[in-house]
Design a protein around this nucleic acid. Structure first.
Lengths: 211, 211
DNA sequence: CGATTCTTTGAAAACAGTCAATCTGTGTGG
DNA sequence: CCACACAGATTGACTGTTTTCAAAGAATCG
């Protein structure tokens, strides 16, 4: 984690990163109203970072203590099971937030890894600053609460598909629900996300196309 | 839903229900500090209700617009798939909250059913009152936010077990994580919760016991 | 006690996973 | 520009797990 912080400081000094914060503010103001001083507060504590494809934002065993907004690119959060298989918990693309909520909340070492599937631009806040923002900017807290609720609902819906759909149904449902991922992430990662082997998913897909 | 409200009013007049609110306040004050006026506010808008085993709190297709705290008993939230199978999304016991978050948030008809697995005592708040409480009682909102985060984390962990564990591992993990349910809800409902057929779970269990 | 609900068991069929090989497209370095 | 490596996708054959169907055995409750 020390390494991460060092990277952040160094990279933050690059001048071309300034429009990442702009993009973040554009997103925020499309959702909530912000006063000038609230924008200044955000500006005073944000961290911007670029990471390249395959670079890690979080390694299993470390504590996650950031809130991370994706300006551009694509990330994934996954866990590794005892037999060494990767299981993708979540994808994230531009205008999504990416984090390990459990580690963030408990302060315990994370069970998950986060890495980049594409070169990505990120805006981060330390936990300390993030919590300050929630207090100082009521609309921000309202937004976060709303997003949290939606994330929970999405999780519950995913659980339902996990426990009730066949492999082929899972695939069909996924490409309807997340068409933006379909062309963007490799099929074997969608398989991992759905809890199905890549071979089974490949077969399910040809079945589906033939219909 | 009209029927529900009628029931609530009628049952609320029974005198023996008064200690349900007490139990709710006991729970709340074990989590957060409450001023006298905050307790009065809660008292002014709560609804208490008893439901018997197999009675429904929510039928699929209706809008869910309550927040429901379980004082005693056991509830389940489930969905019915196209082929007619029940799939249990969530269980709830005393000191848990039970709701359909998606319908509550969106105002759309629910995809889920909620019914009682045991005779249960409930404390409810209408959506309108609930939202008032969140504003008027900051500590209550903080508590709700914390619970919401934990629920999300639990969902994510459940997704991980769904996509990475075998039937037997799912059973083992479940009884470790939720020993309180193990003796309380029938096995075929645990199977439904885990996304496994009851026969498979029955066999997984005898395997497990033999070890 | 009878009825209902729940659990277990057996056998067959459907489904998904594994292993191994091939095929495709992409990108990199010589 | 070509050759090569590499990541990803597909296919076939096989194995193993899970589901389904059917029946029977416990347990619980009125």
């Amino acid at each position: 984690m020390l390494q991460l912080i060092t990277n952040l400081i160094v990279i933050n000094s690059y001048s071309y990163l300034s429009n990442m914060f702009e993009a973040f503010i554009d997103y925020l103001t499309s959702k909530i109203d912000l006063t000038h001083s609230e924008k200044e507060l955000l500006h005073s504590c944000y961290i911007s970072r670029k990471i390249k494809k395959k670079q890690f934002l979080l390694h299993e065993g470390n504590v996650w203590s950031y809130s991370c907004f994706i300006v551009s690119g694509c990330l994934r959060c996954y866990r590794i099971s005892d037999n060494g298989n990767e299981h993708i918990i979540r994808f994230g693309v531009e205008n999504w937030w990416m984090y390990d909520s459990e580690s963030f909340n408990t302060g315990e070492p994370s069970k998950s890894n986060i890495d980049a599937l594409e070169d990505s631009e990120l805006v981060l806040f330390t936990k300390e600053n993030y919590e300050k923002l929630l207090i100082e900017i009521p609309n921000f807290r309202n937004l976060v609460d709303t997003l949290q609720s939606r994330s929970f609902d999405a999780s519950q819906n995913r659980i339902y598909t996990n426990i009730s759909y066949t492999a082929e149904e899972k695939y069909q449902h996924f490409i309807k629900l997340h068409p933006e991922f379909y062309k963007r992430v490799p099929l074997h990662m969608i398989a991992s996300y759905l809890g199905v082997s890549r071979e089974t998913l490949s077969r399910a897909r040809t079945q589906y196309v033939q219909k």
